[in-house]
Design a protein around this nucleic acid. Structure first.
Length: 595
RNA sequence: GGCCUCGUAGCUCAGUGGAUAGAGCAGCAGCCUUCUAAGCUGCGGGUCAUAGGUUCGAAUCCUAUCGGGGUCACCA
């Protein structure tokens, strides 16, 4: 890579010219801004201390040194403290000809021995997936692909929260008001059916609370004493005791939900290597807590509850086990983490979980450390922000959640309407058209969500998310499809899409800009993996597509009569298509051959 | 209240130590006998929340203040 060579040569220049060692952090390279001539810019301000000359003079001296000592340098110019280097076209052309046919340009082979474990999705089994889960799923899936492409072995894990009081609420409501309704009899997706009874529970529960409050009870007390919640707790106790009736119902309803989830995951296009269930891992956690008590790092109180005091770490006292011996959230996560470590000895253990749980994960890390698990340092919480709606926050109880299945269907419908309006599918058969609606609808949704920095809260505006113009997934997909069309036309005309480097071919500005952009891709993948941010890839993909569109409009391709130029532009187009496809693949977005 | 986090154009977002802070949307004006107009070009739009500080250089780092969000459960 040219950047590496340049870094070395600049170090050498500073050493030779000023008898001084430049620290790696002092060597700042950046892409030259478009309004100036050049490809790569060296910022020379850091060297003026050792040169004891003006920034301009320093830049000129280094520029002169590079020009005579580095064969890739064509020329240079100096503006203030910025040394703009123009790289020889031979470098660019050889970069193009050696890489344009490579299927996995920008991706590294998997080289790590220990895997990175990415846990994401992690749904509760009492209601269907919603918009918040979509952000989670897309981030987790995309991050997995990014890490893998940066050379990591990746294991994608889903941790299903299949036990607890919330499930029992749905079970109770179904027993009482369900009349034996099943997904088959109702025509509802399993997860939606179970979610329906969760809502029914809540409705009657609220009525009971209101009734108790009317008799003079405080609301807080009423919510603990309402008959429905007491019954749900009884079911939970029965379940923990292994009561057959409770367990059978639990299995049946969870089965419906899993079927529904599987469908949603499939439509969304995400998958897992392994699925864990909390009903199986919470016991490991309990054992760990016992161990901690025996080691004396956790303390058991008189009532039987177990605590850890994290005052020394600037945190609170934290409950690890209830007085009745049942486990809490932290207990389960301890168990799950330990199991992950035992199974994989991961290089890094990544949790894709909302930022409202930041404190929880900080505590989890420290609690494990107290147990002597130094590996807890390798846990990384990818803490993403909430998805807000124009009307405000999503609240399941107020019916303001955006259901995942509904949302995807809406995207498909909109893309269909749009494609018809634009007359895009006249030559498509039904099957191909349907695939296109899905590809584009999902492309719009995924890009809309992934282009935002994970850690930030984001606003989901339904009207804007179905927009297919501008900075959107479909714009990028369209750029790809158009390149494919050009390549098809070229093949029909008998032009060969191959590039033989030739000294006589010119490299015009739009071509050079496009090549520079493509040249950045491998570095972008590395950066995205380091920062755990699919948004970096998304924004890059848009920049690249924009760059191609400028190239496309400024230069003819098929009508170009100079053979070398046409070959250059065709191979450049093909290269761009490949990189766009690779970038979108990292985001889990498919590309259409035609649109 | 303690801790965490965010605040950039009318709106949604890029930009985390470098040049005159960028896109898209929305608004206005152009471009389809042409390789796909889901596109391209142009115009207008900014006290980078505020005030200090560090630095040759700050939207970016530090401190304080203001504003939004989160969190501090024998919920998950």
């Amino acid at each position: 890579m040219i950047e590496q060579i340049l870094t070395n040569k600049v170090t050498e220049a500073v050493k030779t010219l000023y008898q001084s060692d430049a620290a790696p952090s002092q060597i700042q390279l950046q892409n030259t801004r478009k309004e100036f001539e050049g490809d790569i810019t060296v910022v020379v301000f850091p060297f003026t201390k050792s040169s004891r000359k003006s920034p301009e003079a320093t830049a000129s001296e280094i520029g002169e040194y590079l020009k005579s000592n580095m064969e890739e340098v064509e020329s240079y110019n100096v503006i203030k403290g910025f040394l703009n280097i123009t790289v020889k076209k031979d470098y660019w052309l050889s970069f193009l000809s050696t890489n344009y046919g490579s299927a996995n340009f920008g991706f590294r082979d998997v080289s790590s021995s220990q895997p990175v474990v990415v846990e994401y999705s992690s749904p509760n089994t009492n209601k269907p997936l919603h918009l918040g889960h979509i952000r989670n799923n897309l981030l987790g899936f995309s991050l997995s692909r990014i890490l893998q492409s940066a050379g990591k072995k990746v294991v994608k894990v889903n941790l299903v929260n299949d036990r607890g009081i919330h499930i029992c609420k749905s079970m109770l409501a179904w027993q009482r008001w369900g009349n034996g309704e099943t997904p088959e009899s109702s025509g509802l997706k399993g997860d939606h059916l179970v979610g329906k009874y969760y809502v029914i529970f809540d409705k009657y529960f609220k009525q009971q609370i209101a009734g108790l409050v009317a008799t003079g009870m405080y609301a807080e007390e009423a919510s603990k004493k309402a008959p429905l919640i007491l019954e749900a707790q009884q079911i939970l106790q029965k379940w923990e005791a292994g009561d057959k009736e409770a367990v059978d119902l639990w299995k049946k309803m969870n089965g419906w939900v899993y079927k529904g989830f599987a469908e949603t995951y499939k439509t969304l296009g995400i998958e897992f290597d392994k699925t864990d269930y909390e009903s199986q891992t919470y016991l490991i956690g309990k054992k760990l807590v016992e161990e901690g008590v025996q080691k004396g790092v956790y303390t058991r109180r008189e009532d039987g509850s177990v605590w850890i005091d994290l005052g020394a770490e600037g945190m609170d006292e934290k409950l690890l086990l209830r007085s009745d011996g049942t486990s809490v959230y932290m207990t389960q996560d301890l168990g799950t983490a330990m199991q992950r470590y035992d199974d994989y000895k991961p290089e890094q253990l990544i949790y894709v979980v909302g930022n409202e749980q930041e404190y929880h994960f900080n505590v989890l890390k420290v609690v494990l450390k107290h147990l002597g698990c130094e590996w807890s340092e390798s846990m990384y919480h990818l803490s993403y922000g909430m998805v807000e709606l124009p009307a405000g926050k999503m609240k399941s109880r107020e019916g303001t959640v955006v259901d995942a299945d509904d949302l995807m269907q809406e995207m498909f419908d909109t893309s269909e309407a749009m494609a018809r309006e634009l007359g895009k599918i006249d030559s498509f058969d039904d099957e191909e058209a349907k695939t296109l609606y899905r590809t584009i609808g999902l492309g719009a949704l995924k890009y809309f969500i992934l282009k935002v920095d994970p850690k930030k809260n984001m606003l989901f505006n339904p009207a804007e998310s179905v927009d297919f113009n501008g900075n959107t997934g479909p714009f990028i997909q369209y750029t790809y499809a158009r390149i494919k069309s050009v390549l098809r036309k070229a093949a029909e005309a008998g032009y060969e899409v191959s590039f033989a480097p030739s000294g006589s071919v010119e490299l015009l500005k739009p071509e050079r800009e496009l090549l520079r952009k493509i040249h950045d891709f491998p570095a972008i993948v590395t950066q995205a993996a380091e920062l755990h941010s699919p948004a970096i890839i998304a924004n890059y993909a848009f920049d690249l597509a924009s760059e191609y569109n400028r190239f496309y409009h400024e230069l003819t391709i098929l009508k170009e009569e100079n053979l070398s130029s046409r070959a250059l532009r065709l191979s450049l187009s093909q290269f761009t298509a490949k990189v766009i496809a690779n970038a979108l693949w990292l985001l889990g977005i498919d590309v259409p051959e035609r649109m």
